[in-house]
């Protein structure tokens, strides 16, 4: 980890003692930023270190959220257990589809994951168990700590995701991923079981993303196919990642917070042009970020 990454880690740790000083509004903004940070960190394992852009990684956000919600509602499972199941189910799904999907390169891979995301959204909108297009209402959390519990859940998830990224950055596991990113053919001829490591990377991404979706479902208490499989969320996550720095440990977190703050201030000021500005921001960021996003460090 570089100096920047340590600063981000310090900031992240500081967030744990911040809540007593926060207004409800700020608490909500930071919770959203932590959500986005967890997604960006998950994607970073795949895109940043393994070189595969899962454009539709939000598919697993939706899967995690829906499995958690359905289990809580239909089977009355307690939230922690439902969240665990949602997370594991996302991971399992990723484990199954990674081998065929990760044979594809660059935009074919990106688009395939996007198709998966949209397809799952449509599937959920058509099934009865998921409440169809109407979605699912969950009971409002009334336990100890109130909504602060979600702040700390997302904070924990982000911290875990951060530490996984830090591990990937330094470990021999990470070397295998980076070798695949740099040159997959060369990696294979030097003994790296590329299929195994690509699958591992994809599954790790899905586990974190799915867990994030599960927490989100209970936090927001109402989920529907459009909000859980939202392509705009994918793009926001990529923008956070690009702004912060792909393939760095702290970057995704920094990017997520900057984007969330910018987007919140704009939302407050001009709610009607929020989407317009988000679109413009995305275009500008792609134009400004120099070629070779992995060569910035």
């Amino acid at each position: 980890m570089g100096r920047h990454d340590l600063v981000v880690l310090a900031g992240l740790l500081a967030l744990s003692i911040l809540p007593p000083f926060l207004t409800d509004y700020l608490e909500r903004v930071i919770t959203s930023a932590l959500l986005l940070a967890s997604l960006a960190l998950a994607q970073n394992i795949l895109l940043g270190y393994t070189g595969y852009p899962a454009f539709g990684s939000v598919a697993f956000f939706g899967v995690g959220g829906y499995v958690t919600a359905v289990l809580m509602k239909d089977l009355s499972l307690p939230f922690p257990l439902a969240l665990l199941c949602g997370t594991l189910f996302s991971g399992l799904l990723a484990l199954l589809i990674a081998p065929p999907v990760m044979r594809l390169k660059s935009h074919y891979f990106a688009i395939t994951t996007l198709a998966l995301q949209l397809a799952l959204g449509e599937l959920v909108a058509n099934l009865e168990v998921t409440g169809g297009a109407q979605g699912i209402n969950l009971p409002i959390y009334r336990g100890p700590g109130g909504y602060l519990i979600f702040y700390y859940l997302f904070w924990t998830l982000t911290l875990v995701a951060f530490l996984i990224n830090a591990y990937v950055e330094r470990s021999t596991f990470g070397y295998a991923l980076k070798a695949i990113r740099e040159d997959e053919v060369a990696a294979e001829t030097l003994g790296v079981n590329t299929l195994l490591f690509k699958t591992a990377s994809f599954t790790l991404m899905a586990l974190i993303t799915g867990c994030s979706g599960g927490i989100y479902a209970y936090w927001i208490t109402y989920i529907d196919p459009t909000s859980m499989f939202d392509p705009v969320l994918s793009v926001k996550m990529f923008v956070a990642l690009l702004m912060g720095g792909v393939g760095t440990v702290g970057g995704p977190v920094a990017g997520a917070f900057v984007l969330e703050v910018v987007s919140e201030t704009l939302w407050g000021q001009f709610p009607r042009v929020h989407g317009l500005i988000l679109g413009l921001l995305i275009v500008l960021i792609v134009l400004i970020i120099p070629k070779g996003i992995w060569r910035r460090r």
Partner: peptide, 28 residues
Amino acid sequence: IGRTFQITRLFSNLTVLENVLVPLHYGG
């Protein structure tokens, strides 16, 4: 079985040492 390539295929963003550590760990 080790090989080299006609147009070299190094791990460009890794250091020289890291380039060697990958095969040492995973293939050697």
